[in-house]
Design a protein around this nucleic acid. Structure first.
Lengths: 142, 142
DNA sequence: TATCGGATGAGAATAATTATAAACGAACGA
DNA sequence: TCGTTCGTTTATAATTATTCTCATCCGATA
């Protein structure tokens, strides 16, 4: 997805980030399509528009976006950082074997039963839940 | 926890692994106390009993134990592999900020609501659930 | 426009993990 | 018991992912 310079500026300022062209392009690359991208994926996409960009800049900006809440971090089941531009509340279905992550919707947590298990002070106001199992391909094999 | 040689032999054979002294010591180190250990943690513990052991051996055996189901992998929220010797069904409560993992018990998943969201073929017979939030320390700061 | 602080780019550095190859050792049958 | 075989261990090299360093550049503000 492309944003106008003004749209991105507004977004960045709201989250306390300075506005640069590289930042805008990195951000646009992440939200261009739904999915969970690695820094390398983002780097490859951004280089098509800014061939001179540095991988370090991609890392720096992804980290900043995560810190300021513009992106969400998907925990690195594939042993590498993944980011998710979908900030709508949603959960993840993760394959224990191949580590593929897909989004799932729905309200399937019973908070009445969960809450007593959670230690005092643990903040569950916006819980993200990852449910592990075996995807079709992996449960087919052996 | 220490196991007799015979106990470990039985366990290993049941999971299709050859029996070696290094394997037994690595395994004992993991299940010695509850927790989620990194390979380095395990290496440090094992070296107290086998000073000459190689880090690669620890990695190899942890991977084998995970593959054959003797240990469970905790997804690397701390950007590094963690293993869990607790094979009882349990779930994890993870701090989104500091990535600390703690075990929680309980039956708080509503499968009637979850199932329709899960694609055909995805195997949920032994789901592990990770619930993310902010631990007390992290929700206190800022 | 001049200034300043933060951002960028290139490459080095670090950390975690995996691969490789040689040496070793347990289990099997002779 | 003695080899033989095959998987295991060790040491080290290689790879991969990520972060750091620092010189330079750019954008925001006066």
């Amino acid at each position: 997805m492309r944003l106008s310079h003004e749209q991105f500026r507004e977004l960045a300022v709201k989250h306390g980030l300075a506005v640069t062209h590289q930042r805008q392009v990195v951000y646009e690359a992440v939200i261009a399509s739904p999915g969970h991208y690695s820094p390398e994926d983002v780097y490859a996409a951004v280089r098509r528009r800014i061939p001179s960009i540095s991988l370090a800049t991609v890392y720096n900006n992804l980290r900043l976006f995560i810190e300021c809440g513009l992106l969400r971090e998907v925990t690195p089941h594939a042993s590498t950082l993944r980011v998710d531009g979908n900030l709508e509340p949603h959960h993840h279905l993760v394959c224990s074997r191949c580590k593929a992550v897909q989004d799932i919707e729905g309200d399937f947590i019973d908070f009445k039963r969960l809450s007593p298990q959670v230690p005092r002070g643990f903040d569950l106001t916006q819980p993200v839940v990852e449910v592990f199992g075996l995807c079709r391909q992996c449960s087919a094999k052996k």
